[in-house]
Structures are given as C-alpha cells and as structure tokens.
Design a binder for these strands. Sequence first.
DNA 1: TATGAATGAGATTTCATTCAT
DNA 2: GATGAATGAAATCTCATTCAT
Lengths: 192, 192, 192, 192
Amino acid sequence: MRDGSKTKELIARTSLHLFVEKGITETTIRDIAAAAGIAEGTLYRHYESKDQLAWELFSENYVSFARELDRVQEEYDTLKDKLAAMIRRFCAFFDQDPVLFSYLLLAQHHQLKKVTPDMETAVTVLQKVIAQGMAKSEVPEMEVELAAAMVLGVVLQVAVFKAYNRINQDLSHLGEILVDTCWRVLVGNGTP
Amino acid sequence: MRDGSKTKELIARTSLHLFVEKGITETTIRDIAAAAGIAEGTLYRHYESKDQLAWELFSENYVSFARELDRVQEEYDTLKDKLAAMIRRFCAFFDQDPVLFSYLLLAQHHQLKKVTPDMETAVTVLQKVIAQGMAKSEVPEMEVELAAAMVLGVVLQVAVFKAYNRINQDLSHLGEILVDTCWRVLVGNGTP
Amino acid sequence: MRDGSKTKELIARTSLHLFVEKGITETTIRDIAAAAGIAEGTLYRHYESKDQLAWELFSENYVSFARELDRVQEEYDTLKDKLAAMIRRFCAFFDQDPVLFSYLLLAQHHQLKKVTPDMETAVTVLQKVIAQGMAKSEVPEMEVELAAAMVLGVVLQVAVFKAYNRINQDLSHLGEILVDTCWRVLVGNGTP
Amino acid sequence: MRDGSKTKELIARTSLHLFVEKGITETTIRDIAAAAGIAEGTLYRHYESKDQLAWELFSENYVSFARELDRVQEEYDTLKDKLAAMIRRFCAFFDQDPVLFSYLLLAQHHQLKKVTPDMETAVTVLQKVIAQGMAKSEVPEMEVELAAAMVLGVVLQVAVFKAYNRINQDLSHLGEILVDTCWRVLVGNGTP
DNA sequence: TATGAATGAGATTTCATTCAT
DNA sequence: GATGAATGAAATCTCATTCAT
C-alpha cells in the first residue's frame, strides 16, 4: 500500500498476460483491474491511459531488449559469433518470459507505427551487425535489409510457432539449429 | 443485383484498406461508410456484422490462397520444384495485391484463433509438402513444424519488410533469392 | 425520426432549461437525455460534446442577440433613441425567452473566456453607440468602458433580479424606468 | 496548531485563486493540492469536503462583508450618506482583495441557491437602507427591489469590468462617480 | 436495396474521498 | 497533522447495430 511501484508492476504483468491472451483492444480496463485485484481507477495512478500502458509495456521492453542484444554482440568479433550470441540470447529470453516475448512478437501495427527511426530496435542492431560483417567480407554482399529480414524471419517465425504451441521444445534447445540455419541463409546468397 | 454486388465489393476493398491501415478494431463502421461513400446501415445489407466482414475477408482469401498453393505444388514432383513454385506464386500474389496480403500477413490473433485445424492453410500445405519431401529423402529429416516455420519465416518476414517499405524491390524480383535461401534452409539441417 | 433537426432543437431547449436550473457542470448527459426523452448517444449525433453544446448554445445566441441590438440601434439617430430602442428590445427578448436570457446572463466564466475580441457582443455594440454619442456631444465625455458598465449594470442587474424572482413585473413593464435611469446615468457624469 | 491554521489559510487562498480562475467544479482537489504544495488528503484535515470549502469561502466572506456594510451604514443618518459610505467601502474592499471579491461577485448559482432568506447579505442591507430612505422621503417611492437592483447593477457591473480588466483604474478612484451615479439613479425615479 | 437517425450497452476516464502508514 | 496510494461511483463518450422511411 505504501509502495506504489509494486502495484505498477502488478498492473504491468497482469496487462501483459491479458493483452497477449485477448489482444489489447479486446482487453478492458475492467478486465485488468479484476485480474489484478485492484480498482479500475488505480490503474490511472500509474498509467495515463490504456494506450499509454500498452505502449510503455511495448516500447520499454522492445528497446531494452535491443540494448541487450547490442551489448551481447559487442562481446564478439566476427559476424558468425555475434549472430550466434544474439540468437542464443533471444532464445533464452523467450523461454524465460514467453508472455513478454509474445507481446513484443505479435505487436500490432498500432504499436509498430509509433516506433520512431531513432529508436534502437532488434532490427536495427541486426542490420548493423550484418552490414559490418559484409563490409569485412565475412559474408557475401547483398541488400542488408533483405538479409536481415530473412535471418529475422527464421528466428521469429519459429518463436511465433512456439508461441502458438505448434512447436513443443523450448527455443533454447533449438538454438544450434537456428544459428546454423541463419548462418547458411547469410553465406549462401550474394555475389561470391 | 449487379449494383448490389458492386456495393459489396466496394465495401470489401474499402474495409481491407482501412483494416490494414488502422487495424480492425480501430476501424469503425462509420470510417468504412465514409470512405466507401455509403450509408452506415448499408454495410449490413451485405455483411451480418463487422466481425463477419473481417472474418470473411480473412478466411476466404486465406483459404483460397492455400488452395491455390496446393494446386501449384501438385503440378510438380520434387520438393525443390514444389517449394520454388509456391514461393514464386506467393511473390506474384503479394505484388498483385499487397493490401490483401498485408491483411492476411498481419492478421490479428483474433482471426487466427478462428482458424480451425481442419481448414487448409498455407501453413498446412507447406508442412504437407515438406513432410513428403522428407519421406522421400529429398531433404534430411527434422521436425516438420520447425522446418516449415523457418521456411515460412524467410518468405513472410521479407514480405513484412516489403509491406513496411523497408524493402523497395517487388517480391517477384526476389523470388530466386527466396527460393535458394529456403532450399538451403531445408537441406542443411537434420541428420545427414 | 427522419428530421434530425427537430431532435437537435429538442436537445437545445432541454439543455438550456437544465443548464439554467442546475448549472452546466451539474447537468449530466443522462439528465439531458432523460428530460428530452432520447438516448444518451443521440446527443452526440448533433453535438460533438457537452462542452460544445454549452458553447454553441451560448455563443450563437450571444452573437445573434448582439447583431439584433446592432440592427435596432441603426434605425435611430441619437444616442438617446438608440439606447431606448436597445433597452426595450432587450426587455422584450427577455420576457419572450427568459430561460435563454438567464443562460446568457448567468453565463459562467468558462464561456465568457472563450469570447474572442473579434466577436460582436452586446457590450461592444453598447460601447460603440455610447462612444458615438459622446463624440457628437450628446452626453458628456467620460471613459466609455465605465459608462457602458454602469448602463449595462442597471439593465442586467434588474434582469438578474427578475431571473431570480426578486422582481415580479415583466421587464417590458420596466422599460421606461430603465430607459430613463440609464439616460440619467449617462448625462449626469463627465465633464460638463 | 499554529502550523495547522497556516495550512488552512494556505488552502483557502489557493482555492480562492483557482476557483476564480477556473470555476469551482472545474478545480480539482488535485489542482488545489498541487498549487498549495500539500498532499491531496491534507485538505480533509481542514475542510469536510470540497463543497464545504467552497461554501465556507463564499458564505463567511459574503456574510462578513454584509455585516461590515451594515456597520458602515449605521454610522450615517441619511440615505445619501449611507449609500456613499457603503459604495466607498465596497470599492476599498474590492481593491484590497480583488480575487476574493471576484469570487463573491461571480459566485455560481450553486452557491447563491444556498443563501437562505434569513442570511444578511449585501443585497438585504442595501434594500433595507433604501427602504428607510424612501420611508423618510429622501428619495421618491418606488419598488425597493427594483431600486436596489439598479444601484447594485451600477456598482457590480463596474466591478465585473474591473475584474475582467476592461477597466484599468482602481475602483476606489471611481468611488465619487459611482456614488453620484447611484444617487442619480435613485432620485430621478419614482412618483414625485 | 439504401439511408442515416436513433439506440443503448459498454468502454474509458475522472475525481472526491478514505485510510493505512 | 500530513501523506498519497487506493477506491469506486459516476461521468463522458463510442460505436456496432437496428429500423422507419
């Protein structure tokens, strides 16, 4: 009662679950309040509006995950190692908090449109790393966006299948396959 | 009658654009009516409800696209050819009607949950084809869902980047790269 | 049902009564809807918001009354006649629609602050007329705003007393007294 | 205790300013607390409710001002002197605390309705004095309420103009004009 | 078939007030 | 006395849907 930040955290976790389960628009303030065991008005002590709650949940985690990825890739020198480390980190994070990652993964248009070009995201980090690798001829040259899209697709779609329970194993167990596959995606293309 | 079906088509196209642009829940009947230049009530002459409109738009195209993919793959014998044909067809369709494909691609949770297991979808067709190819040892054995996810990821994420204008070229121009890449995704993994 | 403007008029009259009776903030949309015999949502087909309703009710009548006063004063040549005609018109209007005039009279701060300097109001018309009269030496010179305030005060405060039922006679019956008094207010002051 | 009454005074002054600036209903407890630099709950240590705060601010000052007016008029014998003294006192008070007087002047309906007939107000004092003057034939007979309304109007409307910055001079400087004008309002009317 | 005003349930949000600390 | 997080009733507003024309 004294510590409002606990309540904020409670609201965040509860909302996250409901947003992932039913969608943002389909989740009402009443739903959140009931699930969190708080009054409807309480939410507004911690978040300006439902929209802002959804956005804060998205953007803060989206950005902090990107930062973490960036930190991880910096520990390695080659594209291959950087990529492997990033993928493994992604898998570990996903398994650790699948609800949060589902939220980020299945993020609606609405949220994504608010991502400004200056925000560091997983996509920008990945593109940066790939671009560097190409510059150092670690992989053949090709359009960076395209390369990033394909690598991203491999990992994300597997995560989506996992989120939808089409795949049973934890992502971490698939780390090696994902790393190998992504590498093969990168090295095979381009002008040799 | 002629007129009536034109109105229905008008509603369908207008809704599709708005749904892709703003999201389904965020698009109001009033938005659709205004954009289509019809009265709000008119929509209900052609569709039972907004939900049904969104679902009809989704399911009919989702299913007919899956059927088309299935027809296409049947024309070929090997997994490699089947896959190549399917990807090329996907690219051609996307370029032809990017709005429709964005709608299918960025489909909300809400819609995907209504997809029953007995419905033939692009995913089931892809899994079937891959499973057959593995059975015939055209590619190494591995979990079919995982293989399908990765192949799907490569193609879909490129399409998503295209939908978000991160990539400029038409998908059709990327057909060969996508085909090659997907093939490499499949052949490299599994137990040799 | 066909004619929406009837409903709008009904909402306007009903709101006016309630706003005068209870105050704007104290009157709820539910109050208005119940009193008008319409659904709550119906109000929003005709007015953007409660605030806008209150403002439209105020500003349109405030301005059109000012225009009417201006038209009236133009029919006469001397300040004395102009003033008399304006006061008589004010009295007649008040008696004709006491609720509307009470609304304008007791208008809250909130509304008055939205009155932009370019809007023609009863006050600006009165000041203009008095200024002209002073210029033509029909009454002694003095600060126009002060003169206008005092004349206005005489008439308005009597109207306020009438609105609060402190005075029983119709304003029209007090027309001559008000005209005489206001004239005496103007001629007695200033540097002779 | 010393501290406590200081807080109460702080709340009173802060509320007064905000009430005048934005209106009572439009001013929230949070507004007051923020402006006064206190916690929201603190207000309730000093006032039962927001309504009671608004009412206390209004009624106490309204009544004490009326008493003061009454005391002032008692020092004089003739209506003319009484009226002059009251007007001068009003001007002095207004200049001394314009915010308070704006609050009393622009008092909402809501407050005025709570004024019971047995309460002594500026209006009742004025009516009493005028009635006495008429009884003593100092001014011609006429309806007391009407006479009071007109005299009141002259003074109040000038104060309102001052409150809205339409007039620049302090009210005290206008004392003589107001006194003269009000006297002329009274003596000119009635049955000679 | 088409219209569009009207509906009313339900969503979001506000805010005076309470109460544990 | 003071705090400020929590409350929850009530207000405003939205919008899918209906229905008389």
